[in-house]
Simulated assay, not measured.
Amino acid sequence: MSKRIVCLRHGQTLWNVEHRFQGHTDIPLDETGIAQAARAGSLLASLRPTLVVSSDLRRANDTALAVARLVDLDVHVDKDLRERGGGLWEGLTREEIASRWPQEYIAWEAPEGEDVADVAARVSAAMRRWAAKLDDDGLLVIASHGAALRLGICAMLGLPQELWSAVGGLGNCSWSVLEEGRSGWRLLEHNAGTLPEPINSDDIPVAD
């Protein structure tokens, strides 16, 4: 028996479609995102989660509720699971960001935004904190955000920062599964739940 964490990215929002950096801005799910959350909820409910936690931002919280309602659990809210802060980039499209801050865009470092190492540390700490509440065979569903989850997963796996870019992003309402083993956490699944498709996220852009 081992503890598992399902890292679930929230459903689609209008800003995802418009390729706008969301960050800490509290954007709701759009109609497609609501449908995605319902589908993911029905699939993940079959795994019988024992604990459901979400970011404090409503796009993640509403996604978590779609799972929790089906298994009669409450959704616990943790601000440390929110997305990477985008500073001056929040609300702007990728084209606007690239035009105004070409060097920062290449590095994907937003002025007045959050450093990736800080995001990885806070998200992984929250993951460990909630996982510690599980029984040995418990399943934790964490509803959060694209960049936050990818960085948190990298930290949970103990990857050095220079290798973080080797881990791909998460599509809307796709998930990754971590399992606790004798030597730490390992990745069982990544970006599951959909066929490969373009990913619109606050995470670092994929190079052309």
Rank of each mutant, 00 (worst) to 15 (best):
S55R: 10
I27M: 08
W175N: 04
A60M: 11
P198V: 05
M1Y: 12
D56G: 12
E95Y: 00
F21S: 08
R100Y: 00
L163H: 11
D72W: 00
G33H: 14
S99V: 00
A120C: 02
P28G: 11
M127E: 07
S176G: 12
T194Y: 00
D72N: 07
S183F: 06
T93D: 05
Q12C: 12
L65C: 12
T13F: 01
E197T: 01
V206N: 01
Q22D: 07
G168F: 00
L163R: 15
D56E: 01
R150E: 09
L44E: 11
A38G: 02
A147V: 03
L170Y: 03
A131Y: 13
A120D: 05
D137F: 06
A125D: 12
D30W: 08
G146V: 03
I27K: 07
A132Q: 13
L170N: 05
E112I: 01
P102H: 03
G85A: 01
C154Y: 09
E31S: 13
R20A: 04
N200K: 04
V116C: 01
A35R: 15
N16P: 07
D208K: 07
D80S: 14
K133Q: 15
A64R: 08
R100G: 01
S55C: 12
A207P: 00
G41P: 00
A45C: 04
E96A: 10
R4V: 09
L159Y: 13
A148N: 11
I204M: 05
A64Q: 09
I34N: 04
L140C: 15
I5V: 15
D135L: 12
G193W: 04
W164R: 09
E197S: 06
S176D: 01
A117W: 06
L65K: 14
E112W: 02
V71W: 05
D115F: 02
D30C: 11
G146K: 02
A66F: 02
S174W: 00
C154S: 12
N200Y: 10
T194L: 02
N172D: 08
K3T: 11
V52D: 10
A37C: 09
T25D: 05
G23K: 06
S165N: 06
W108F: 09
G158L: 03
G152I: 10
D208R: 08
V167M: 14
P198I: 02
S46W: 00
I153P: 03
G87A: 07
I153T: 03
V52S: 06
A120S: 08
R129K: 15
L134E: 13
H145Q: 10
L29R: 13
E31P: 05
A66H: 04
L163G: 01
L88F: 04
C173F: 03
G158P: 06
A132G: 14
R58T: 15
V167Q: 13
R150H: 07
V52E: 09
T50D: 10
E90W: 01
N200G: 00
C7E: 04
Q12R: 15
R4F: 10
S46N: 10
A37E: 07
V119N: 03
A120H: 03
Q36I: 13
E162S: 08
G146Q: 02
A68Y: 07
L29A: 12
G41A: 02
A192H: 09
D115H: 08
M1P: 14
S42V: 01
S176Y: 04
